[in-house]
């Protein structure tokens, strides 16, 4: 099949993850992976981001599919159940707002900047080498928090990639679930008319 330019967006995803090791401020760019899917779901009226542009999904299909780092087994039924997918979305949101709250605390001066990356919402890794100062502390705090979210979801994605099918992450990816919910809601509203 003919490759399009957007079939190479996995490179952008990989570069993004690597940049976070060198300069944490780059991780602000990750906001694009939050806003573009939502804009496409709201204005574009479909899951165009997942269906075409998501570099993370491509990265998993490349590593798991092409390079074969996947058992290629079916995901367990609970993983694709609505309660798990919606539950994970809510959990993810809660963690996201906690991250924003931490940023706010640093902004307001209540706490100091913590130069750590938190993996799986538990393990705190020192990450001070990736910050060189020169910005307001809250800007850096957000970057550390955001990178924690991105790295954590990558680790979960890699884990389920190895255990199940390459793109198993897409089954419970919060952005995927959220954009599908938006599309479903619109479908329900339109069918009532």
């Amino acid at each position: 099949m003919k490759k399009r330019w957007y079939d190479y967006l996995w490179i952008a995803s990989a570069v993004y993850l690597i940049l976070g090791f060198f300069n944490i401020l780059f991780t602000w760019l990750g906001l694009l992976c939050f806003f573009i899917p939502l804009i496409m779901a709201i204005i574009g009226k479909d899951k165009g981001y997942c269906n075409r542009y998501c570099g993370r999904g491509q990265l998993f299909s490349l590593i798991g599919g092409r390079f074969g780092l996947s058992r290629k087994k079916d995901v367990p039924r609970w993983l694709k159940s609505k309660w798990f997918r919606y539950g994970f979305l809510i959990f993810f949101f809660a963690m996201f707002f906690q991250m924003l709250w931490t940023t706010w605390l640093v902004f307001s001066g209540a706490t100091d900047l913590k130069q750590v990356v938190t993996l799986l919402w538990t393990f705190k890794l020192p990450w001070h080498w990736a910050y060189y100062g020169g910005t307001a502390p809250w800007v850096a705090q957000f970057a550390f928090g955001f990178y924690s979210v991105m790295l954590t979801s990558t680790i979960l994605g890699l884990l389920t990639m190895v255990l199940f099918k390459p793109r198993s992450w897409c089954v419970y990816c919060p952005m995927g679930t959220m954009t599908q919910l938006i599309c479903k809601a619109r479908g329900a509203v339109n069918s009532k008319r």
Binding site: K47, C50, N51, K80, R167
Partner: peptide, 14 residues
């Protein structure tokens, strides 16, 4: 009921 609309199938269908 269980489709997540990810589009992986679309990409591979010849």
């Amino acid at each position: 009921a269980y489709c997540v609309a990810c589009g992986c199938c679309v990409k591979v269908c010849p």
